[in-house]
Computed example of a mutant assay.
Amino acid sequence: MYVKVVWHHEFDEEPTLLLSEIENRREVRKVEKFGDGRTQFAGPEGSTGDTTLSETLMPSPREIAQDPQFSLELMSAEDFEAEWRAAGGR
């Protein structure tokens, strides 16, 4: 499953867009985009910046969408792969 989550907040140092590949409720790869244009990623081969994969099970998309600080939509594998490559992931 691939999800795109917009995080509504006012923290300059935190990402505003999180793109995740999730298998069995575990994050496999993640791309984070920041308001200043920076992009970071994390995956099995490494990471950039301070981006890391979640060490706990991910909540369901429904649970994430119920939190008002997040807007969630599912994305295709192809769209995630394009974002992953653009972020520098291999």
Rank of each mutant, 00 (worst) to 15 (best):
M1R: 14
Y2N: 10
Y2F: 10
V3C: 13
V5C: 05
W7F: 10
H8S: 09
H9P: 03
E10D: 12
D12H: 11
D12W: 11
E13S: 10
P15W: 10
T16G: 15
L17Q: 08
L17D: 11
L18T: 11
L18N: 11
L18Q: 12
E21T: 00
E23I: 07
E23F: 07
N24T: 09
N24M: 11
R25E: 15
E27M: 06
V28N: 09
R29K: 06
R29M: 05
K30I: 00
K30W: 04
E32V: 07
K33D: 07
F34T: 06
F34S: 05
F34Q: 06
G35P: 12
G35S: 12
G35W: 15
D36F: 08
R38Q: 06
R38I: 09
R38H: 09
Q40C: 14
Q40G: 12
Q40H: 14
F41C: 02
F41Q: 00
A42T: 02
A42E: 04
G43L: 06
G46C: 10
S47L: 12
S47Q: 13
T48D: 06
T48Y: 07
T48W: 06
T48P: 02
G49C: 10
T51H: 09
T52A: 08
L53W: 09
L53N: 07
L57G: 12
L57T: 14
P59F: 02
P61H: 03
R62D: 10
R62E: 08
E63Y: 06
E63L: 07
E63V: 05
E63H: 06
I64Y: 04
A65F: 00
A65L: 01
Q66C: 07
Q66A: 08
Q66Y: 12
D67V: 08
D67Q: 10
P68E: 01
P68M: 01
Q69D: 12
Q69N: 10
F70D: 06
S71F: 00
L72I: 03
L72F: 03
E73T: 05
L74K: 15
M75R: 06
M75S: 00
A77R: 04
A77S: 03
E78C: 04
E78A: 03
D79S: 00
F80S: 03
E83L: 04
G89K: 01
G89C: 02
R90S: 00
